[in-house]
Amino acid sequence: MAEAMLEAEGLRAGYGPAEILFGVSLRLARGEVAALMGRNGAGKSTTLKAIMGLITPRAGRVRFAGRDIAGLAAFRIARLGLGYVPEDRRIFTDLTVAENLEVGRRPAEGRDAWTPERLFEVFPNLASMRHRHAAAMSGGEQQMLAIARTLMGNPAAVLLDEPSEGLAPVILELMADAVLRMKREGIAVLLSEQNFDFAAAVADRAYVIEKGEIRYDGSMAALEADPALRAQHLSL
C-alpha cells in the first residue's frame, strides 16, 4: 500500500454523554479515493468530524501528513492541507457564490492554486451564478459550491461527507466527475457514502462502518464483486 497520507487509529468520539465511535481505524493513501460506507447513524459523519477536529476525539490517534493532529483546532488542521465538506453543506447562505469561494481561499503550496475560474470549469453550473446568493441555489448547486469552496483552500486531501445525499441522478454524475477530477489533480479523498453505486464508481478502497466500528476494510472492487459480502454489510 502506498504511503498513508491520513491515518486514524482507535478513534473514539461522541457528543456529550452519547458515544458514537468505538475505536475506528482507517488510512487514506496519497492520491487515493476511499469510501466510508455505512447506514444512517453508523458513525460516518462523526468519524469525519473527529478527524477534522470539529469534535474532540476522546481517545485514539489521528495522523495527517506526518503530524499528529488529534486535538488540534479545526483551522490548524485545515491549514495543514486537509479540506472538509460537511454533510449538510453549510453554505454561507447570505453570501454570494464568489464570496463563499473567497471564504475558502488559502494560498497554495507548491502547486497550481485553484481559482474561481478553474473551479467553474469543473462545476460549469456555478459559473453563471457567481453573484447569486447561495440561499437561492438548489441542493445540487449548493453541494458543488461546498466542494468548490473547500478546493479554494488548495487541500492535499479532502473529507467529503455524503456528497450524493438528496441529489438527482444527473447531478450525481457531475459529482462523480468532480471526485474523479480531484483524484487526477492528486488530491486524496475520503468520502462517506450510503449510495453504493456512487461509491463504487469513484472509490479505490472501501470501509464499512457499523455501530461505530469498522467492519470491512478492503478494496472497493472486492466488495463490488461479492454480492454476499455486500449484502452482509450493507443491505437490510
Binding site: 477534522m52 470539529l54 483546532a73 479545526a74 453549510r90 454561507f92 471564504v103 488559502r106 469552496r149
Partner: peptide, 11 residues
C-alpha cells in the same frame, strides 16, 4: 452565520 465552518475552512 456559521463560526465553526469558517474555522474548518482554515480561518
Amino acid at each position: 452565520r456559521d463560526r465553526d465552518m469558517v474555522g474548518a475552512l482554515g480561518v
